[in-house]
Design a protein around this nucleic acid. Structure first.
Length: 315
DNA sequence: AAATTGAGCAACCGCATTCCT
DNA sequence: GAGGAATGCGGTTGCTCAATT
């Protein structure tokens, strides 16, 4: 197995850092900056590999680190961010000033996960555990979907007592929108949704409405030490051009376009949610979060339109 | 008092990506 | 463009310490 170059060197210390080592590293970086990490240990007089020095600096010695327990606001924000970003700890940490990815990961694994489980929420999907169980069964029993993970698409299944919604998201391929490099591979710009009534209500008539909403987060470089709920999360029904369609037959695709409101054309990240209302929900005028999109981070000033369809027609 | 267990945390490891020549 | 080095990231390990048996 190939090993990192620094690991070839013999006699390198491992394990916990002593106060003396910390002092050496802190003094060196304070004076000279870290520069090339692989040369830091030698220059700082440490018998460590550069990787170990980097980790120690990032996770412990950096002067801008916030010490102490996580506040409930921070914990709530982590849960919300995790719902959108998943286990992208570094991206989550970028939105919590003074906190490290390692710290957040440890908190998640040792504490938050358990709290969510206690509340009956699945820490992976952020859905009620009962619903997750049904989804698992459903996806286990149905391999006939036209969407395959081998294609350039992500796939997920939602199920309610009425019928199931299958949706597939096509990842960004177009050159016409330039997106943040690290995120571009996961941006859905097109998607379609198949609605399958076979579960309990085959042949039903229903109405379908896509109601996009967005959740806004502050940009990663936000240095504010405290972030109010209003600042970091905004579940909204903004000025979208959303398309509502009615279909008496789920084979009829509903086509439409969504347009990002100017209000949101900034550098904030956001995710989209797709709402689909059944006939019952329309009558009761409840916007039911029928289908929630894959977590997708988008810089909206670069991406102003998203096309969608219903009824299994691939755009 | 000793052994066991579990939570919390720091650090390591391996892989992926980016950078540099 | 290829290949190696450096860096970044997430999963995992293992240590410490307090609580429990």
């Amino acid at each position: 197995m190939k090993r990192h170059s620094c690991c070839y060197k013999q006699k390198l210390r491992k394990g916990l850092w002593s106060p003396e080592e910390d002092e050496k590293l802190l003094n060196y970086i304070t004076k000279h900056g870290h520069g090339c990490w692989s040369s830091v240990p030698k220059l700082a007089g440490l018998e460590r590999c550069g990787k170990s020095c980097r980790l120690r600096w990032i996770n412990y010695l950096r002067p801008d680190l916030k010490r102490g327990a996580f506040s409930s606001e921070e914990q709530n924000l982590i849960v919300e961010l995790h719902a959108v970003l998943g286990n992208r700890w570094s991206q989550i940490a970028a939105r919590l000033p003074g906190r490290t990815d390692n710290e957040i990961k440890n908190l998640w694994n040792s504490c938050i996960k358990k709290k969510l489980m206690k509340k009956g929420i699945d820490p992976i999907t952020h859905k009620p555990l009962s619903e997750v169980g049904k989804e698992t069964n459903r996806s286990d029993n149905n391999n006939s979907t036209s969407f395959s993970s081998e294609t350039n698409q992500d796939f997920f299944v939602k199920q309610t007592s009425d019928f199931s919604v299958y949706s597939a998201f096509q990842k960004q391929e177009s050159n016409s929108v330039s997106l943040n490099n690290s995120l571009s591979s996961m941006i859905p710009t097109q998607f379609n949704i198949d609605i399958d009534g076979s579960v309990s209500n085959a042949g039903f008539e229903t109405q379908v409405c896509v109601k996009p909403s967005i959740i806004l987060f502050p940009p990663p470089n936000n240095t504010s030490s405290t972030i109010s709920e209003q600042d970091h999360v905004k579940v909204s029904e903004p000025n979208w051009e959303s398309h509502c369609g009615t279909t008496s037959n789920l084979n009829n695709p509903v086509m439409g376009q969504m347009k990002w409101s100017d209000e949101y054309l900034n550098e904030s990240l956001f995710s989209t949610q797709v709402y689909v209302k059944s006939e019952t929900d329309f009558n009761s005028n409840i916007a039911f979060p029928w289908s929630q999109s894959q977590a997708c981070d988008v810089f909206p000033k670069d991406l102003q339109r998203m096309a969608f369809s219903f009824g299994g027609q691939t755009l």
